[in-house]
Design a protein around this nucleic acid. Structure first.
Lengths: 358, 358
DNA sequence: TTGTCGAATGTGTGCGCACACAAAATGAAA
DNA sequence: TTTCATTTTGTGTGCGCACACATTCGACAA
């Protein structure tokens, strides 16, 4: 049988109230008594019964999540992870409010951040897509002693509780390694940002650094890395035109690395025949990408596991807030290499989320 | 606020005792009353408060785990996962007894199985390495209404609660795909079982089937697949000799697929120079393998994630026993492709096991 | 009508803990 | 010494549920 407060109290010759005060550091305990009780607790190996504790607290913990539009498949997956965590933690009195920003509008992000701060949540989960506004928000939370779990985009030197996501630099390295597999001695590879641009998005910069660095280390090959930012990724005509220009400029192009989940946009915009000799590496198991992976148009996808990011973000907040556990500040998720043959096992959600807390 | 039994009772005009009887199907409730209470429960969206329920049950759930020697790195990792699950679920009154078998002795397995049955556990976790003895054990548990979670080795048509592990067939396919990357038009590949043999181990058979099937589907290549069982994998001299024989026989050998976690045994036994033009694919992130991966001697490892198997096995039993959740009968873990560049992210255990149940 | 027996229903207690409140001890001032 | 404020310690209640036990009801026979 586990040791209870009552057992400690008996052995120490005090009441349960006193033991309670010692455990919670409520003060008003004679120093000598406190010391003694602490000794007995260690001796008997007391561990708080989280079940009973949670029940007695009878408190609601509100977590606010600042993420992005649900109609983007990537963010939708992330939100699903959060919902799963919500289910898993509801018994502990956790409620989650999600706020959905706009990927192309930092101002909306800042506005939502203000709303969240006004609502005084117990914990915050944030994807700080915009570096400046993100840092500011995290700072404000820190000032109010609200723990913050960061996902998706790592913010250096932040005062957050933890970061959960990938090592962007290394994901660039992996992408390079994958492109390198079938590559000739001399070739050109394209790094393509289908994104508003790396100006305010550090992870794109990191990916490029990792990508380029890999090609400088390999021996016996001479790879020319070119990079391109293409902001209006929904304009298929323009994207098609630009890509054909690049192809013409670089007839030895053998690989394309799309730095986010939008590889499918490229494949949608440009005629199939141009890809026949190209290796394509992209990110994320969103359905249009999976479709292209299965029909051999995309060769590799790197899984960022957004749903796990959302799930673990919440779980870590709960671990901190309720279970009062140590939370490790940087939790890099694996860089899953996904090909046609192992794709299905990553998309089944039944496994990745254990239905159990602690 | 969540709906409580008390709320249901009030609204239905009965006592909490009656509601309790309805919830637990204890009988002795007038049919009309039962129906009414059920209706009110649905109306108000009642959900059992697992925290309070667990506390009130005040029951110890004993889980027995039948696994294998701890001094093998693979099984050691699996045991670590079980220990982690033990920590995570101790608050729910779960205790775990581990029984360690011998990989080369089915009789010990059977003996331990008997011991476990005698101890009348509430749930069983088993790695049925030996098909016959495994099926028998699962059968016996079923007869005694003890739920069984199977890990590591899938047992077809078993009456177990669930299987958690890899799809062996598909892992063979992936291995073939990985060997195929750098492969010439015409070549020989070796499938090597460093194991007592596939006689009683279905997963080895499945892996070979998957492996061979891949090479029959690819076009434009002519790959010769040879397979070899080598039981005395600890006899370095013999292993070296046999491997050199194979090399001599097949000068066009370009790839080796070691079907379990013992790829490092081959590299230990044979001189390095013979591997220079060989692609090696193995299983599992055990430290001698990782070492060889980092020094580029092993090219790919497929991660079977034994620790996650152990962890999820326990978690699923808990989900079934305590949380009374539906458990999906087949839970294939991803076939992680591990190379030098993403290896580290798989070996960090901080992430894969969320510290939270439900 | 009363008594009986089984079914139906209600009540009370404890699980281990958090916290409010009551009680006792201490110590300083009168 | 008494008084009173302050610190220290003890007690009781509730969190939501499971379950044992107490009570009431209803049908039927005597």
């Amino acid at each position: 049988m586990r040791v209870r407060i009552k057992d400690i109290a008996e052995r120490a010759g005090v009441s349960t109230g006193t033991v309670d005060r010692v455990i919670h550091n409520r003060g008003n305990v004679a120093p000598r008594v406190k010391e003694h009780v602490e000794k007995v607790m260690i001796e008997m190996g007391y561990k708080r019964n989280i079940i009973a504790s949670t029940l007695a607290y009878n408190k609601v913990h509100r977590i606010a999540a600042l993420i992005f539009e649900q109609n983007d498949p990537y963010w939708h997956q992330l939100y699903q992870g959060i919902e799963r965590a919500q289910e898993a933690t509801q018994h502990y009195g956790v409620t989650i409010d999600a706020f959905f920003g706009d990927q192309s509008d930092p101002e909306i992000f800042a506005q939502l951040a203000r709303e969240i701060l006004d609502s005084r949540p117990d914990g915050v989960l944030v994807a700080p897509l915009f570096l400046k506004q993100g840092i500011d928000f995290i700072q404000q939370c820190h000032k109010r002693s609200i723990p913050v779990a960061i996902i998706n985009t790592q913010v250096p030197k932040s005062k957050a509780l933890c970061y959960i996501g990938q090592d962007s630099y290394q994901s660039g390295v992996i992408a390079a390694r994958l492109l390198n597999f079938g590559m000739k001695r001399k070739a050109t590879v394209l790094l393509l940002n289908l994104d508003p641009g790396p100006a305010n998005a550090q992870h794109l910069v990191d990916k490029e650094r990792g990508f380029r660095s890999y090609f400088t280390t390999i021996e016996g090959k001479c790879i020319n890395v070119i990079s391109e930012n293409f902001e209006h990724f929904n304009d298929r005509k323009a994207l098609n035109q630009r890509f054909l220009e690049i192809l013409e400029e670089h007839p030895d192009l053998t690989g394309v690395f799309v730095t986010n989940s939008r590889a499918y946009k490229l494949l949608d915009a440009v005629e199939q025949k141009y890809f026949e000799n190209l290796v394509i590496v992209g990110f994320d198991l969103v359905s249009p990408n999976i479709h292209n992976l299965k029909s051999n148009k995309i060769n590799f996808l790197i899984n960022q596991n957004p749903s796990l990011q959302g799930y673990l973000g919440v779980i870590n907040l709960v671990n901190h807030l309720i279970l009062r556990q140590e939370v490790s500040p940087i939790q890099y998720l694996p860089l899953d290499i996904v090909v046609r043959e192992n794709c299905d096992y990553y998309t089944r959600s039944s496994v990745s989320f254990p239905s159990v807390v602690f």
